[in-house]
Design a protein around this nucleic acid. Structure first.
Length: 506
DNA sequence: GGACGGTGAAACTTCAGGTTGCCTC
DNA sequence: GAAGTTTCACCGTCC
């Protein structure tokens, strides 16, 4: 189309004007920005300009606040935006909130989503307009233009097959000069070549070990032959360089005792085989092997957490911010006596990441001491979505650590790892673990029961149904819990008062 | 005269993302 | 590189 789109310039901010224009035409838009903060701000600005709200939106807003037990400032901000049918969307949101926003955008309740690239790929969430505000993004100390591929991903969200005959992808420039540049680079530009990632050492060592332990390739010739047929080799053509890298990785795997070379064949050791099954980076596995060797049954949760946080799999780690530096330094000096890993020197380039791994493990440590999302956001500047992601990864790594410790016959720490895994999954102190066997009981309800002196399942068996219902805040749930511990209750009628409970011995 | 509050400019700080992977007190 | 946040100087008002 060659026609020029006329947009009313009611406000100074062109994004807001575009959003309002979209709404005026009764259409929907996705607005892509380059930071989480911008996404929130952008949504907020647009929603401020809108007055109308309806019950559907108010309900939606309330629902979004219920995603976590104590709403964070991020949740509240989202709630305010949703009241106007506007949302922001990025990785820090709780999965429930993301689902809510996505499904309500599909339904048409939510009209505008300001988002980071989360919504660019993978998800099928088309809109009439895809508005791309930022084409620059910060990547390790530099602002760089995003790849054309990514621009295409974002603009590809425009146009809903079943609703519109066409869509509009709008790339916003900040000046006339930039306009031509953007047009050349993105609109007329060719997407980048795709490059093989196999040459990256963590990837290469993972696949080498995997191929050897599944016996796909075992001899030197087979190995070279296999890799010479990969896209990597096709792309770089330099088989000599390839051989050097492969040999380096083989030596490494051998020195870590994940593979052995006998009778002209590479074979995976028991440990190596399990590491492949666990799908962790052999480097991580080796760190676990070395450090778990030092562990005793006196090991502290923070030590295990720090061990798993100090891996490539956990990246990106929480960053220690400038302001926090001294505080975390002090905090770390309190805990480092328990650590299994060796602390690099302060002048070592690895020190920052080590420090970050400590911050991350401290966050997880707070989680297992029942700190809520609101607290974690204020203290660590981390949203529910990221928290859950880190918990899940840490949990997987802890399982890997468990398996390695098992093979190492470190019986004394196995129990500690299992306990920690459980605590991590539910975000509870050790004392609540017995109660978590119950379905429908998580960290919040378990804590309520514990406070009421119902600390074990046997305590629950003796609990008065009325009291239990009061503690848990639901009669139905109280009955369900009693049923789970083997106490059958009959009610006189379903709508009855709590006093309608009658207990029957079983 | 001093406490307080509002304002705005300058200084400072920070910055996207589930590729997956396990199923266990 | 730029948006967002914090800091700080400045000014007016009130008691």
């Amino acid at each position: 189309m060659n026609s020029v789109l006329k947009i009313e310039k009611k406000y100074a901010d062109s994004i807001t004007n575009l959003a309002l224009d979209t709404l005026k035409n009764n259409k929907q838009a996705l607005i892509f920005v380059n930071t989480k903060r911008s996404a929130e701000k952008c949504a907020e600005e647009i929603s401020k300009k809108l007055k109308q709200s309806n019950k559907e939106l108010t309900d939606l807003s309330t629902q979004s606040l219920k995603a976590v037990s104590k709403p964070t400032r991020q949740c509240k901000r989202l709630g305010i935006c949703l009241e106007k049918g506007i949302a922001f969307h990025h990785a820090s949101l709780h999965a429930k909130q993301k689902d809510l926003i996505e499904s309500n955008f599909r339904k048409g309740t939510v009209k505008i989503i300001c988002c980071t690239p989360t919504l660019a790929a993978g998800l099928d969430l088309p809109a009439f307009r895809a508005i791309i505000r930022d084409v620059k993004r910060y990547t390790n100390r530099d602002m760089v233009n995003i790849p054309v591929l990514e621009y295409l991903q974002m603009s590809g969200r425009a146009g809903r097959p079943n609703y519109d005959t066409y869509g509009e992808a709008i790339l916003v420039s900040s000046s006339d000069g930039q306009k031509d540049e953007l047009f050349e680079k993105y609109v007329h530009g060719e997407p980048e070549e795709i490059y093989s990632k196999l040459a990256v050492e963590p990837v290469l060592r993972t696949y080498l070990l995997s191929l050897i332990s599944t016996k796909v390739i075992n001899t030197n010739d087979q190995i070279i032959n296999f890799f010479s047929k990969t896209f990597w080799a096709f792309q770089y053509k330099d088989m000599n360089q390839l051989k050097i890298t492969i040999n380096k990785m083989l030596k490494l795997l051998e020195s870590w005792e994940f593979i052995q070379f006998t009778d002209n064949k590479f074979r995976a050791t028991v440990l190596g085989k399990r590491i492949t099954e666990l799908y962790i980076d052999p480097l991580t596995a080796n760190q676990f092997v070395i450090n778990l060797e030092k562990a005793s049954n006196q090991i502290k949760p923070i030590a295990l957490l720090q061990l798993v946080c100090n891996t490539l799999e956990m990246r990106p780690l929480l960053r220690v911010k400038l302001k926090e530096y001294d505080d975390f330094q002090e905090e770390m000096s309190r805990y480092e006596q328990y650590f299994l890993t060796d602390e690099p020197s302060m002048f070592d380039p690895d020190y920052d990441e080590y420090f970050n791994s400590f911050k991350t493990s401290l966050m997880l440590n707070e989680w297992i001491n029942e700190k809520d999302d609101d607290y974690l956001m204020n203290q660590y500047d981390i949203g529910p979505g990221i928290t859950r992601m880190k918990i899940e990864t840490a949990n997987w790594l802890l399982y890997a650590a468990y398996e390695i410790a098992r093979i190492q016959q470190k019986q004394d720490i196995l129990k500690e790892i299992i306990k920690l895994k459980y605590r991590l999954r539910y975000g509870v102190k050790e004392e609540l673990l017995p109660l978590l066997k119950l379905k429908q009981v998580g960290r919040v309800r378990a804590r309520k029961l514990f406070r009421a002196n119902l600390k074990k399942l046997s305590d629950l068996k003796k609990a008065k149904p009325e009291l239990l219902a009061q503690i848990i805040g639901s009669k139905k749930l109280a009955l369900d819990i009693l049923d789970q511990v083997g106490v059958k209750i009959e009610t006189n009628n379903n709508k009855g008062q709590l006093s309608d409970f009658s207990q029957r011995k079983v």
